[in-house]
Design a protein around this nucleic acid. Structure first.
Lengths: 345, 345
DNA sequence: TTGTAAGCGTTATCAC
DNA sequence: GTGATAACGCTTACAA
C-alpha cells in the first residue's frame, strides 16, 4: 500500500532533529526532553503521521501477529474460539490472522508455510481431521515460534495445549443417562482417529463398565463428518435395531439434533422412549425441542486461554517455558432431552 | 520472531553470487540462467530458506493483508462472511486479519488506526451498530487503500458496497404473509438508525400499502440488539394487544425464534393463529419448530463477492476504479412457520 | 538530552 | 546474465 505518506524522517527534517530523537520521542523515551517530546507528538498529529509497523517489525525482527488455523470459521465452536482469541489479542496489542484448513492436511501444511514467511509471533491451531502427521509444525519449534493447540491436538509434538477432558465429560454424560434410568445406551461417535472422539467413546465405555452395563458394539455408530445428516443416518440405524436403545449419547450437538429429528418423526417420545444427549452446547441446543442435554465445551474460554498462554510464551520466549497443557473444566447442562435423575441412582 | 534464520544473503555467499541474482532466481526471473536458477532453488531448499515477507513488504511498500472488521465473529452471519472472504483471499494469495468492533464506535475507530499502521492492502468492513459518523474511514480514501463495506454500509462515504436489497426482500416476505391470508401483520424491527433495518421496515410498509392494508404503528416493535430475548419481549407485547396480529415479520431470525417460543408458550398455533417470518436463514431456522420462513441473506456469497471486489481494486489501484455497489439477489425460503399461499392472492 | 550510523531482508535501478 | 548499490521506514548501540 502507498505507505503512511509521512515518516519520522519528515518529522525530523521539519523540526531540525535527528530521526532517532523523533523515534524516541514517539515512544515516550524518558531520555528525551518533555518539551521536545510534546512538540514531536504535536507535529506528528498535525502532519497525520502514522507509524509503519512493517518497518518496525522488520527492524525488531518480530511481529505482533498471531496466526490462527481453524478447520472452518463458520462452525460455531471455532468462531467462538476465534472470538475469544481476538478479544485477548486485541487487549494485548496483537493482531489475529486467520486461515481455514477446511480439514485438509495439504492445506494445513501450506498454511504453516505462509505463517512462517509472514513471521507470525505465535500460532494457535486446531488440527484438520485429515491430519495424522504433524511434522509440518515442527519447524516452529526450531524457529522458537510458540505454538498452542486447542481441541484437536497432537501428542507426537512438543507443544502447549488447551483441551477439555473429553473422557471425563463423556463419562459424566453417560452416567447422567444411566442415572435417569437408561440401560441400553447407544453412542453416535466421531472419527476414531481423532483423539477427542476416541476419548469420548472411551469415557462412554468406562461409564457403562462402572455401572456393570454391557458394552454392545452394535450400539456404536460412527458419524464421520458429525453433521446433522450423519446423526440422522445413525439414528435411523439405531431405532431399527431389534433391541432399540433407550438412550443415545452423541459426540456432538449436530448429530444429536439430527437424531432427535429422526426419533420424533418415528413417533418415539424423547426422553421417555429414547433419551438423547449431545456434546458442545451449541446455541441450537436450546432451540431444538426438546432442548438438548449436552456438555458445555466452553469455546470462547478455550480461545481466551489459548491466546493468554500463547502471548505469555511469546513475551517470555527467552525464558524458554516448557510447553504446558491446560484442561478446562466442562459443565453438564441438563435439559429436556434426558429424564430426571433417580434419587437412588 | 527470530526471523527466517537463512536469508538470500547467506545463499549469495554460499554460491558466490550477488544477492540480486539470488533474489531474481527465486522469483524465476527469466534473465537468470536456467542452471543458476535451478541451483539457487536447490540450495534454498537444502538450507531451509524461507522468504521474509515483512522485508519484502517494506521494500515493495505493500502487503498482502486484507483487514476485516466485523461486529462479532461468533454471529453466524459474520462468520459465514469471513469464511467466504478467507476462501477467496487464500486462493489469490492474500492473508486475512480480523477485528471485532463489538458494535462499538470507539473500538471501530481504534481498529482503523491499527489497520493503517499495519499497512493493509485493503479493508472489508461491516459498520458497528453504534457508528453514525464514518470519517474514520475517510483516511483510507486518501491513502488509496480500497475499502469495501458489506451489509451495514455507509452512504456518506465514497466506497464500494456489497449488500442485499433489504427493501425488496422485506417487501417480498410481507407479501408472502399477505398471500397466505394474513391481514394484521406486525413487524419486529431493528434499530432504525441502521439503514438495512430502516429499509426492512419500509419494505414491509410498502407491501402493506400495495395491498391496501393499513399501517398500524402499534404493530411495529423495536428489538434493539436483535436477540432472542428482545424478540421474545416484542412478541409478548404483540400478543397482548387487543387486536392481536395474525402474522409477524421479524427483522432477523433470532428475534423470530424468540417470538416463536413465546407464541408457542401462549398456546397459540403457528402459522394458524400467528404466522412468523424471519430474515437471514440462519442454520437454526430449520431446527426451530415450526421451521422458519425466512430470507436467505447469502452470507458466504457476500464475503466472496466483497473479497473479489476488494482484490480487484487492490490490483488495479492505478486504474482508479470508481467505487461500485453490488446488490445480491436474495431468496425467500418458505417453511412451516407461515401458511400456504392462496392461489388467487 | 540529542546525534551518528548501522542494519533488519528484500527489491529495484543502474551498470557492465 | 550478473553485480553493486541504494533504498523501504524504523530501532538502537555508541558517541558526543
Amino acid at each position: 500500500m502507498p505507505g503512511s505518506r509521512v515518516t519520522i524522517k519528515d518529522l525530523a527534517k521539519r523540526m531540525n532533529l535527528s530521526v532517532s530523537t523523533i523515534s524516541r520521542a514517539l515512544h515516550n523515551n524518558p531520555s528525551i526532553g518533555e518539551k521536545t517530546t510534546r512538540e514531536v507528538w504535536k507535529l506528528a498529529e498535525q502532519l497525520g503521521y502514522f507509524p509503519n509497523s512493517v518497518a518496525s517489525n522488520l527492524r525488531r525482527r518480530k511481529t505482533n501477529m498471531i496466526g490462527v488455523i481453524v478447520p472452518r470459521i463458520d462452525i460455531a465452536f471455532h468462531s467462538h474460539v476465534i472470538s475469544g482469541v481476538e478479544e485477548i489479542a486485541y487487549k494485548m496489542g496483537y493482531n489475529v490472522t486467520i486461515y481455514q484448513s477446511r480439514d485438509s492436511y495439504e492445506r494445513e501444511v501450506a498454511i504453516t508455510t505462509i505463517l512462517q514467511t509472514n513471521m507470525v509471533a505465535g500460532i494457535i491451531a486446531c488440527l484438520a481431521l485429515e491430519t495424522r502427521d504433524c511434522s509440518h509444525f515442527a519447524r516452529f519449534n526450531n524457529l522458537k515460534v510458540p505454538l498452542v493447540f486447542y481441541d484437536r491436538v497432537s501428542n507426537e509434538l512438543e507443544a502447549s495445549k488447551v483441551i477439555i477432558d473429553d473422557f471425563d465429560a463423556a463419562s459424566r454424560v453417560t452416567q447422567h443417562l444411566i442415572n435417569t434410568g437408561c440401560r441400553r445406551i447407544a453412542h453416535i461417535a466421531g472419527c476414531q482417529t481423532t483423539s477427542i472422539f476416541a476419548d469420548r467413546l472411551e469415557g462412554y465405555k468406562a461409564a457403562l463398565q462402572r455401572n456393570n452395563l454391557p458394552f454392545d458394539p452394535n450400539l456404536v455408530c460412527c458419524a464421520n463428518d458429525l453433521s446433522y445428516e450423519e446423526g440422522a443416518r445413525c439414528a435411523r440405524k439405531l431405532i431399527r435395531l431389534a433391541a432399540m436403545p433407550d438412550g443415545i449419547f452423541c459426540a456432538n450437538d449436530y448429530t444429536a439434533i439430527g437424531a432427535i429429528q429422526v426419533i420424533k418423526k418415528a413417533n418415539l417420545k424423547i426422553p421417555d422412549d429414547i433419551a438423547v444427549a449431545g456434546f458442545s452446547n451449541y446455541p441450537v441446543s436450546t432451540i431444538i425441542e426438546p432442548a438438548l442435554t449436552t456438555i458445555d465445551d466452553r469455546a470462547a474460554e478455550m480461545g481466551k486461554t489459548a491466546a493468554r498462554m500463547l502471548i505469555r510464551q511469546i513475551e517470555e520466549r527467552d525464558v524458554n517455558i516448557a510447553s504446558e497443557t491446560i484442561v478446562l473444566r466442562t459443565d453438564l447442562i441438563v435439559r429436556d432431552s434426558t429424564g430426571k435423575e433417580k434419587v437412588n441412582a
